[in-house]
């Protein structure tokens, strides 16, 4: 199972970010989202979605093995995390985020909420 971005469908509304924070942290706070949307304006006038493809580079970078794979999904063990930021720096897509109110970085859990809400079908789940 994979989360796939179709940036050409995106209209930049950000509902995906809001539902991400609400689903994973119970907070109305898009700064707690594990994906990002970038508008390229005024030119060329397109949106770019950046999201986690579960590549596992974060786990390789973690010095305390606080990121582990479960069924193809890399999850952060918030108790084991030492908040060193190595994974955030290492993420090739720039989609591990730090937030001042959280002790561990924010990472996609493949909860599928963003795909469920996206009104443009710019985020879709592809089964293996």
């Amino acid at each position: 199972m994979k989360l796939i971005a179709k940036s050409e469908h995106c209209s930049g509304c950000g509902a995906c970010k809001l539902v991400c924070g609400l689903t994973n942290f119970g907070q109305v706070n898009p700064a707690m989202a594990a994906l990002s949307i970038h508008g390229r304006f005024p030119a060329p006038g397109v949106y770019e979605i950046r999201l986690c493809d579960q590549c596992g580079v974060c786990a390789e970078a973690c010095p305390v093995e606080a990121i582990e794979e479960e069924n193809g999904i890399f999850l952060v063990d918030t108790d084991a995390c030492i908040t060193c930021g190595e994974c955030v720096d290492a993420c090739p897509h720039g989609v591990m985020f730090e937030h001042a109110r959280l002790d561990a970085p924010i990472k996609c859990t493949l909860c599928k909420a963003c795909a469920a809400v996206c009104p443009r079908d710019a985020l879709v789940i592809a089964e293996d």
């Binding site: 209209s11 509304c13 006038g45």
Partner: peptide, 27 residues
Amino acid sequence: ITDKGCYCCPTPCGKYGKARTGLGDVY
């Protein structure tokens, strides 16, 4: 070029594009 939505909008009315005219091309 693209639909351009406001915050959390499922029905984006914004239509962003490029206009080509005798006075110039603009986004």
